[in-house]
Design a protein around this nucleic acid. Structure first.
Lengths: 340, 340
DNA sequence: CTGAAAGCGCTTACAG
DNA sequence: CTGAAAGCGCTTACAG
């Protein structure tokens, strides 16, 4: 194995001191172009590769940030992760990734390993069972700034879509169509679940529409979960005018289960959902969904973190930013008419 | 900002030397339990956090690997990435992620920044326009092992699914159904594209079935691309018995475009695809697809890299591993019958 | 404008 | 069993 080329080697070859070589590397204007050129040539000739880790030891920042999401099979999370990558890459950062798989313990391990590796900051889409105090303690001990994405726990910087508002708009839409009963299906006690249910409830109750949202209707965030939840609803003999799924993924199962029972989405029952991933527009019939703009959440969240990282912004209090949702109306609700 | 606690602080508090504290940290058996206990207590009390970066400078490995994929909106890539995370995490590694967005230049930048950060190895799902020699030179200069995933360029370690074989099985199936003409739609000159076309061609020609696969039928890997490609085919007045899409994502557009033209997938034309992501089973009617098992590709690829990283395995020649594909037959082909 | 020196926080032979 | 010392590859005041 060839011994690694260091700045020392470069400076010798160029006939200058190590300090000078370092200054050139960092683009200092104190070095005349003629000297700089010599150094650059030597680097090129020797095949020098910068060792940022060594530099990190002296400097206070590593130009590395950590991103932890629960998973990325869900396209909402995937888009969010790619948006984060876009901004951080352009700003010269490289990102560590970790998937918590919605397990607090794993999330904790990942945070620890990223802190050991001296990340400048952390972007986390937190696991559902996150213990906020434990997380806070962990990052405070290491003094690393953190911004939460898509799932809110109080006391942290946070960027997510405005679920309450989005759900409210959806509720208004369903009420305007003439539905008298709406079932909210799937999802668990995530912050976003609570927000969506709240927005729906407020809008619907105000308009005299019944919201069904019992414990029995909860499910995992998967097509299977959505199908099972709808199955339980039907089995107790209830037939709502509209079904709102916790998310597009859950809604996929809703479509399937309806058809298994001989019901057609958009004709017999109005169906709507949240996230507006590709899944929604790709359904047959196309499905109404509340867009949450994961790219915007990722972008805004990253910007918030980068601002924290800038000098002097460490002590500002916890910030919140909510992304404006948008209702995408498609035939799964638009073509539905009340049974008369 | 509180000054960072170092091993020096810990050793002082515990009344031992820095070397001893370090040895305890690394779990050396040379230190008696009584001393070790004192040191651990001091660490805990002071809230010591290990600085792995400093350690890296002395040791030769960073327990960090780099994963570069083109994107993760495609669920095939997302599953692959999560499989890599699973194995590496369990082995104590943390991963840097980068999305090349299928741009060679960006891929090059990402590789450079990961190398600067001293990754122990690299796992890459390469951009389509990758220049293999350039990539090879870049990683060789830094002496970092690399394994390619899902897209093969010769001379590199590689793990991917056996596209030729998978396409062959699919071709056999379509021929057995009685189709006389098969159009291969979407995709571009990716290695996997070439492999799929080749497998299809071999199987089909052997059975006297015509394969249509002209330049005009190429498209981006997106529903829109698939729809447009099918549109071009129809516009030239051709109506095949079966359509094989380059991937599930392309097939989505094929379904849409057929319906726009008043044709029903699985009844008027048999439709099949590759990857067997959630999309395939979720279509109406469910779509036949060749499963490529991204988890297995990710898992196997990571194991291959980890083996390379182990002492003494740096010099073995380039290795190849192909994951066995599997044809998932669903109604989009199963219910189709030749026009008689 | 450039060089000698100290230091970032660890680990690792080497003594004792 | 434990400590003093050198060193990993950089950067950064500080002289000159």
């Amino acid at each position: 194995m060839a011994p690694r080329i260091t700045l020392e080697d470069v400076s010798k070859a160029a006939g200058v001191s190590r300090s000078t070589a370092s200054l050139v590397l960092r683009g200092s204007s104190r070095i005349p172009e003629s000297t700089a050129e010599k150094v650059r040539e030597a680097m090129h000739e020797l095949g020098y590769v910068y060792n940022r880790q060594a530099a990190n030891l002296r400097q206070s920042r590593t130009m590395t940030i950590g991103l932890i999401v629960t998973e990325i099979i869900n396209p909402y999370f995937a888009e969010l992760a790619m948006a984060v990558d876009q901004i951080t890459h352009d700003a010269g950062y490289t990102i560590f990734i970790g998937y918590s798989r919605d397990l607090q313990e794993r999330q904790h391990e990942i945070v620890a390993s990223m802190i050991e590796r001296q990340v400048d900051g952390l972007l986390i889409l937190p696991a559902l069972d996150t213990d906020p105090d434990r997380l806070r303690k962990q990052v405070n001990a290491a003094n690393v700034p953190i911004v939460l994405l898509a799932r809110h726990f109080t006391g942290f910087d946070y960027v997510g879509s405005d679920n309450v508002k989005g759900a409210g708009i959806l509720g208004d839409h369903l009420a305007a169509l003439g539905s008298k009963t709406v079932a909210f299906l799937g999802g668990r006690l995530a912050p976003s679940f609570i927000e969506r249910e709240k927005g729906l409830r407020t809008s619907l109750e105000e308009r005299g529409v019944q919201l069904w949202s019992t414990e029995e209707l909860r499910s995992t965030v998967s097509p299977e979960g959505g199908a099972a939840a709808l199955g339980r609803l039907f089995d107790q003999g209830s037939l709502p005018d509209a079904v709102v799924a916790y998310s597009d993924i859950v809604a996929q199962g809703v479509y399937d289960e309806m058809r298994r029972r001989g019901l057609e989405p958009g004709r017999d029952i109005a169906v709507a959902s949240f996230d507006d991933t590709r899944i929604a527009a790709g359904q047959v019939p196309p499905m109404t969904s509340v867009a949450g703009f994961p790219q915007q959440v990722g972008t805004k969240g990253t910007e918030m973190l980068l601002t924290r990282l800038a000098d002097g912004n460490a002590d500002i209090p916890a910030q919140l930013a909510l992304i404006e949702p948008q209702l995408k109306i498609r035939s799964s609700t638009a073509t539905w008419r009340p049974r008369s």
